[in-house]
């Protein structure tokens, strides 16, 4: 599928950058035919993915690298990829279970939000080699479904 526009950026794994990342992605996505609710949900999933990288991949070590690539494709499709080079996920199936977290102080809702508010979620991860989270939102299909 052809990419109509894209943006790519990277930043340090600082908690202060979570807000920056979700705002950037939200602003970029707003050029699509979407509502404010759509943008809020996109900001939420980006916040979750970046927080996961900072907390779980890097154990809050704030000198590491997180990359984001956002693409606007044909047919009203938005693709977001959040990539880190941290410790990776040992058991992806387990990580996807609602309320599962390796940190007892957390709710384990990050992936649940990503699954619920996006149309596709793909996780590529190897222990010790980092994690790439790919999120797809199909605005056209959602609009067609809403008008059906």
């Amino acid at each position: 599928m052809n990419v109509k526009n894209y943006v790519r950026f990277e930043f340090l794994s600082l908690a202060e950058n979570i807000s920056f990342a979700r705002s950037c992605v939200g602003a970029f996505a707003s050029q699509m035919d979407c509502t404010l609710d759509d943008i809020e949900e996109i900001k939420l999933v980006v916040s979750e993915a970046v927080s996961n990288s900072i907390i779980h991949a890097y154990d809050k070590e704030d000198t590491q690298r997180i990359e984001i690539m956002v693409s606007i494709m044909e047919m009203g499709i938005l693709e977001i990829i959040v990539k880190d080079y941290g410790k990776g996920i040992e058991d992806i199936k387990q990580a996807l279970k609602p309320a599962y977290s390796t940190d007892p102080g957390r709710m384990g809702l990050g992936f649940t939000f990503m699954k619920s508010f996006m149309d596709e979620l793909e996780i590529i991860s190897q222990p010790g080699e980092g994690t790439s989270v790919r999120l797809i939102r199909n605005f056209l299909a959602r609009a067609e479904k809403a008008h059906a």
């Binding site: 979700r22 809020e40 900001k43 939420l44 916040s47 979750e48 927080s51 102080g105 957390r106 709710m107 384990g108 809702l109 990050g110 939000f113």
Partner: peptide, 13 residues
């Protein structure tokens, strides 16, 4: 204006 699972986690804690 915004809350994510970290914010929710703080409230639950």
């Amino acid at each position: 204006t915004f809350i994510d699972s970290s914010g929710l986690g703080a409230i639950i804690g």
